[in-house]
Nucleic acid binder design. Structure first.
Length: 236
DNA sequence: ACCCAGGTGTTTC
DNA sequence: GAAACACATGGG
């Protein structure tokens, strides 16, 4: 198959429709339309909320993260200044539903402090620098790994960087790209074979997650697998 | 009572 | 470096 990642993208989009992840919104949710999404740039508060969500969703279901974000918002704590100043124990109590609350409270505080001290001009300015440089700086912050860094850059910054998760790697392996095992290998592969378009990267990652949730996690031998050519005999 | 979810850091071979 | 482990809640 030529450029399998691009072919799979179209198949997934046709099968599942636009997912409408932050900050993209479906023009017609549930339908396959092209271009599938419109982009509504977040304001600075929105950017911070997305970065917070990226940290809280580490190995955690998004529904649990939504509760934590709502709680932070209700207590007027969803800002870099408030989180940087608050005791970790207090933050932990608010984000309890997202799991790993002690670790994540610390991560939120460290990220907030880094933002205020090193980039007081804000996330938009910070994330608008050279992509790989900003990414490397994010990776140097405790609690931010490659997936979180790419999620922040893509979803909060609108930068074209591909987010790789566990499903993505299993999918690549299924497609025969055995060499792309490490995170950066997989990321480079997708970015080489797809246009550098944040809308595509955004939607693609969301579609892969949906594939994992809907199909692979629970139905290893689903007859309606959207990837018929590569339909898994086991979990992809 | 399991298993999984939009991972990361630390420890250990 | 690559495994193994800790971190923890909520839904199926």
């Amino acid at each position: 198959m030529k450029n399998a990642p691009a072919v799979i993208y179209k198949k997934l989009l046709t099968a599942f429709g636009p997912q409408g992840w932050w900050p993209l919104y479906s023009v017609a949710k549930g339908r396959c339309v092209y271009p599938p999404l419109v982009y509504l740039p977040p304001d600075e508060n929105g950017r911070f909320e997305i970065c917070t969500g990226a940290l809280l969703t580490q190995n955690t279901a998004w529904t649990n993260v939504e509760k934590a974000l709502a709680r932070l918002k209700a207590e007027n704590m969803l800002s870099a200044r408030r989180l940087a100043a608050a005791p970790e124990g207090e933050i932990a109590g608010l984000i309890r539903s997202s799991g790993y609350f002690m670790q994540k409270a610390r991560k939120l505080k460290i990220f907030s402090r880094h933002l205020l001290q090193r980039h007081p001009e804000g996330i938009e300015k910070w994330f608008s620098g050279p992509l790989e440089s900003v990414r490397a700086e994010l990776l140097s912050v405790w609690g931010i790994g490659p997936e979180t860094a790419d999620s922040m850059l893509l979803y909060a910054g609108g930068r074209p960087t591909f987010v790789v998760d566990a499903y993505t790697r299993r999918l690549l392996s299924r497609l025969g790209f055995a060499e792309a095992r490490a995170y950066d290998e997989a990321r480079n592969l997708y970015m080489r074979l797809l246009p550098a378009d944040y809308k595509i990267y955004n939607e693609y990652h969301a579609l892969i997650v949906e594939l994992g949730k809907r199909h692979c996690a629970k139905t290893p031998r689903c007859a309606n697998c959207p990837l018929s050519a590569a339909c898994p005999k086991e979990k992809i």
